[in-house]
């Protein structure tokens, strides 16, 4: 959990950020965040939870209605131009100029940050090399594959060697292989650079894999923060799943398991029973015998280690996949109803 002593060293701080869009759509509802310098920090949540809005405020694209955002010690509202020099941004959709080549895109981006002459040329060639685009440097971006475009997007965000890099759903639309390759690239680039990275994702496994610290965000505020292990360890022991042979009275199930002291959080939905156990393997025989003596037939039993998905469930009371799908559907419906102003409009 963030505390005051760490503030000094934080690359990104948000305090009570609030943002409401036209039509009373609440995007952020008092979001607090603290990203220590030099860390790769994951912001995970379903579509519409406020991840993208957070990034837009932090990167000076839009402003919060209330609250404070500080990047590299600079208040984004008070001095956006200084913040812009410190940050690199990779948007969730590609923002490269399609009618220009990869080299032209990078060169212009470098110029905007004040790079010029041989220094600019070297930097552009270096990035093209690093991202495996040297061969295609003179091709129009229009003809690039999704993976190539994405690599160019990241290169664009890195031209000026930013102190803080924002990656908004960097791997959206990439297959797992390309996603992995992209992250390897990012990992390699930031090594020894002490660059701070804030990335958003709606893939839990991505957050778990690449985030040193993770914040789970839901309905516009952070509901939990910690390392992936910390978040998982707040869930005791193992997860227990039992498929019941027929519909039963949930209360009966709960009562019959109440006597086992290291089994907790019993939930019964339809014919599925879910519970937590300190040590799953030890609990299974007792659970089975208690159920049997209560006359409840079962089909199968599964024991699994806690996952981040369980953590998500614990903090938000909802399964991640369900929420995410609902979010996507709502976003799709919303985008259709709204004027189709911007392609990325649903990405709030």
């Amino acid at each position: 959990m963030p505390d005051e002593t760490r503030s000094e060293d934080a690359a990104i701080v948000a305090r009570g950020l609030k943002k409401t869009y036209r039509g009373d759509v609440v995007a952020l509802d008092g979001l607090d965040l603290e990203v220590p310098a030099g860390m790769c920090y994951g912001l995970v949540g379903p579509n519409g939870s406020g991840k993208t809005t957070t990034v837009k405020i932090m990167t000076t694209l839009t402003t919060a209605d209330d609250g404070q955002a500080v990047v590299s010690g600079i208040d984004v509202k008070a001095d956006p131009d200084r913040v812009r020099k410190m940050i690199g941004v990779v948007d969730q959709r590609s923002t490269a100029d399609l009618t220009a080549t990869a080299r032209e895109n990078l060169t212009l981006q470098g110029r905007v940050y004040g790079l010029k002459g041989p220094e600019l040329k070297t930097r552009v060639s270096e990035l093209l090399e690093q991202f495996g685009l040297s061969k295609d440097a003179k091709r129009l971006v229009k003809g690039f594959s999704g993976g190539m475009t994405r690599r160019l997007d990241v290169a664009l965000g890195l031209v000026h060697r930013p102190h803080v890099l924002f990656l908004d759903e960097p791997s959206t639309g990439l297959d797992p292989e390309a996603r992995h390759a992209l992250w390897e690239e990012i990992d390699r680039l930031v090594q020894g650079q002490r660059m701070t990275i804030l990335f958003t994702t709606h893939y839990l496994e991505e957050a778990e894999r690449y985030g040193e610290l993770i914040s789970i965000i839901d309905s516009g505020h952070v509901v939990a923060t910690g390392t992936p292990d910390e978040l998982k360890s707040t869930l005791q022991g193992d997860a227990l799943f039992v498929e019941l042979a027929g519909a039963v009275d949930p209360d009966l199930v709960k009562r019959s398991l109440a006597g086992i002291e290291d089994v907790s959080d019993v939930v019964v939905e339809d014919r599925r029973l879910r519970a937590r156990a300190d040590v799953g393997a030890r609990a299974v025989p007792r659970v089975l015998s208690e159920l049997e003596s209560a006359g409840i037939q079962i089909d199968s039993v599964t024991v699994s280690r806690s996952s981040l998905d369980d953590a998500y469930l614990l903090y938000t009371g909802r399964r991640f996949a369900e929420v995410d799908q609902a979010g996507e559907e709502a976003a799709a419906a919303g985008a259709g109803a709204k004027r189709a102003k911007k392609e990325g409009g649903e990405g709030r």
Partner: peptide, 15 residues
Amino acid sequence: DVNRGVIDRFLQTPI
């Protein structure tokens, strides 16, 4: 340019 996000990208730079 707005639809392609190019404007947003430039708005996030010191230009």
